[in-house]
Design a protein around this nucleic acid. Structure first.
Lengths: 213, 213
DNA sequence: TAATATATGTGACAGCTTGTCATAATGCAA
DNA sequence: TTGCATTATGACAAGCTGTCACATATATTA
């Protein structure tokens, strides 16, 4: 978490710093980016940097929080638009989500983020969000409330949340793969949809009749 | 790839170096590990290090290749033991694979590897393997040849390979999660099996009859 | 207004890192 | 022994991080 001092800063200075940091993190992944470059880019003194942020990661997580897509709202809207249908709703969500990330003017930043994101950083960043943002949607609805269970095997909230969460991580993995293989938006969307079909309908041929041997 | 000079080294020196490196990489992830520590641990001069390896990553990938489980053989054996049954075969494979990694005496090394592995490193390492090892199994059989398609929707080799590959990455993701949440071997196995069921049988309730609207 | 307290800005610095390079030591063939 | 290729070495430049004593600005009070 940046310090209060940082948030108190005049807008102009804050912007300069964010821009200088985005420049560095768009060119290099977290490990290779240097504070030295960021303070040079932003024309602030090294000492000041450490008055705003604990370290490089602190700033990085702040930027991720600032620019990451607010997927919850999009997910909610998508499921509502498809009358709670799991497969159609997730499909709609994923198409927009992938498009947003891969066509963003912050492409370099996201690319480095995805290619160098690992489980630990992912989780550390999440903890960060928990502290700063409420997990409730603006209208108070939870995502599990807008997904119809009529044609799903999952009955309990917990089970459904497990599935939704897992599929979100699958989506992010697919985006990673897209960046790595330099796939187009369309190709990445299709790759995800294929996997979504696997998990929705299964890869096994369902037994048509009860058959005893 | 380590240089020929490294491979020519007397066994004792090679072992010292590998041990010194494992000590460092078990205590710290790749980014935090330092060559300075490794050469101190191994009692070799800094100059020599650079005569054996291009950089830190070069050594790291060598170690991964050296100690990583040879999953292909285990996978083949598992499918064969279950008469090619996809679900049962993968289940057997995953249980042994998870157990091997999480109960290894190289726990620290694997833990750091999984928690800090990202897509880019993963792929870079893979390219490394391609150069050094053949992708064929010892007896010449390919994995797709020992998986029965009788009860799978996949017909072509390509499709089946896609599925098998995806599930392997799901397995590795689950192991990551296991390390992060400090799950037991059993809990990690169960988490994976739950996901394997999702993908095998689908999460949607299959339509019983053909219904036109 | 002046005096004091609080908040913010600064760059030199110690201590660490990496990769290189001139030089020294060793092995081996003639 | 001599000569050549291979291997070993640590000092070094150049870079990085995080800190700290000090300078400056802003707010508060007498």
């Amino acid at each position: 978490m940046p310090t209060q001092t940082f948030f108190n800063l005049p807008e102009e200075k804050k912007k300069r710093l964010v821009a200088g940091a985005m420049k560095e993190f768009s060119a290099k992944p977290l490990n290779e980016a240097s504070i030295s470059n960021i303070v040079k880019n932003s024309k602030i003194s090294r000492g000041s940097f450490y008055q705003y942020f604990e370290d490089k990661k602190d700033l990085y997580f702040f930027l991720i929080g600032k620019f990451r897509y607010n997927y919850r709202n999009l997910m909610l809207k998508s499921f509502q638009e498809k009358d709670g249908d799991f497969h159609e709703g997730y499909k709609l969500f994923s198409e927009k989500y992938i498009k947003y990330i891969m066509e963003s003017e912050k492409f370099g930043f996201f690319e480095n983020m995805y290619l160098h994101m690992n489980y630990q950083i992912n989780q550390e960043a999440r903890v960060d969000f928990k502290e700063t943002k409420s997990h409730k949607l603006p209208n108070g609805k939870r995502i599990v409330d807008v997904v119809s269970r009529d044609n799903l095997k999952m009955t309990s909230d917990t089970e459904l949340i497990d599935v939704l969460r897992y599929i979100l991580s699958m989506l992010n993995d697919t985006i990673m793969e897209g960046f790595w293989k330099e796939l187009s938006v369309k190709e990445t969307q299709d790759l995800f949809l294929k996997r979504l079909e696997w998990i929705t309908y299964g890869i096994a041929i369902p037994a048509e009749k009860e058959e005893k041997e």
